[in-house]
């Protein structure tokens, strides 16, 4: 197949929009990471049905669960942020609103992610 791109365009590898490859790639990378994490988390959530405070804390605070839970929440929020950004870009047409919503989604994701990580570490290390 003939490649109609210039050698420079091919070397940059940024596609026709010159932007977005990083976003696209990050969305796929987080998606692949989430396949085992979500399966693990969904099974855990079912197993924890009706668990009380002590049982839930003992589960969250065990070393392997801490690592997997932090990964699930952080990677999940990042994947959600990337996805919501695409939805906003598709359906919100005013530039101001578009930017404001993308910024708000990112801020909320970072705040909740950081708060969750601090909470998990606090449970695990007995704060």
């Amino acid at each position: 197949m003939n490649d109609l791109r210039s050698p420079l365009a091919r070397a940059r590898g940024l596609g026709s929009a010159r932007d977005g490859l990083k976003h696209w790639w990050a969305q796929r990378l987080t998606a692949i990471a989430l396949i085992p994490l979500v399966v693990w988390f969904a099974i855990s959530l079912v197993m924890l049905s009706g668990a009380d405070y002590d049982v839930a804390r003992a589960w969250i605070g065990s070393p392997l669960v801490m690592v997997l839970l932090i990964l699930t929440i952080v990677v999940g929020l990042q994947h959600g942020q990337l996805g919501l950004q695409v939805v906003i870009e598709d359906y919100v047409h005013g530039d101001g609103w578009k930017l404001a919503l993308i910024v708000a989604v990112r801020f909320i994701a970072v705040i909740f992610g950081l708060a969750a990580v601090v909470a998990i570490l606090r449970i695990g290390f007995g704060g």
Binding site: G80, G83, L84, F112, A119
Partner: peptide
């Protein structure tokens, strides 16, 4: 796929809230 993606994003905040309450 989009609708569940939006719902799961909100759900992720809910799950973050769960561990915050557990702490």
């Amino acid at each position: 796929h989009r609708a569940t993606g939006i719902a799961l994003s909100v759900g992720a905040l809910y799950l973050a809230t769960w561990v915050i309450y557990a702490a």
